[in-house]
Design a binder for these strands. Structure first.
Lengths: 117, 117
DNA sequence: AGCAATATATCACTTACGGATATATCTAGT
DNA sequence: ACTAGATATATCCGTAAGTGATATATTGCT
């Protein structure tokens, strides 16, 4: 029994801005909830401001769909750390590729915009 | 009395993928509902597949928040045309700029990813 | 001591979205 | 002429997602 019976990453697309930002800030290093919330609010993190309800509700759903998992590690009994899973990385990459295509369309349309008349 | 008492475009961010795709396909030329739905499903339109419930529900909300409006024009009594408003264009640009920053972070993280170890 | 920030949890409310159904017209194939 | 599929919009209901408030406890600052 292979450990992964995950669906096609593309079937979860498009991701909501909240979910994409959480995956983005978790890409590279694991973090605890509050740190995720703070980094997601920064421009580099997507500028996505969310309250605790959105954060922990989203983390729950993301764990249930296999995008992230708790690490078990703790440097402070108040903190719970989360990491992105392999499947989560695949979904994140797929969404990044989708957004890259969208941004190409945006640039192309901006050119036509400037060229008209 | 100026015609626009619209809020700061940034206050509506981030946009959902559905709303962003609808604005994207309307950028440049006005279209009727069904055409929006078909184009949004194409890769260039964002690859966002939506049923009629999502489409017309979203158009309603977007009209109420001033992002789009009906043109009144019709080349076919079955079709209702929509166009993006000036305010809608501002919101769309703001979201495109946000996504561009996000994509910069994605690229930067991808480099670190490849460079690690 | 008191206040703000850190850190998580939870609940109630609203909004957004998905999927199905319905209706009507038009077009293409047989 | 019949039929199937595409076009085009409308509406409804259930679920998922996000918002905002409240709660609790700890830490750090002044």
């Amino acid at each position: 029994m292979g450990k992964a019976d995950n669906p096609d990453p593309n079937s979860l697309l498009p991701l909501s801005p909240v979910v994409f930002s959480i995956l983005l800030v978790l890409a590279g290093s694991e973090k605890h909830g509050y740190a995720i919330m703070k980094e997601a609010a920064l421009p580099e993190g997507g500028g996505v401001t969310m309250g605790p309800g959105t954060l922990y509700g989203s983390l729950d759903r993301m764990m249930r769909s296999g995008l992230v998992e708790e690490t078990g590690f703790t440097d402070n009994e108040r903190r719970r750390y989360y990491r992105i899973t392999k499947f989560g990385s695949e979904v994140f990459s797929a969404e990044a590729a989708r957004l890259a295509r969208v941004m190409n369309t945006v640039r192309r349309k901006a050119l036509l915009e400037g060229a008209r008349q």
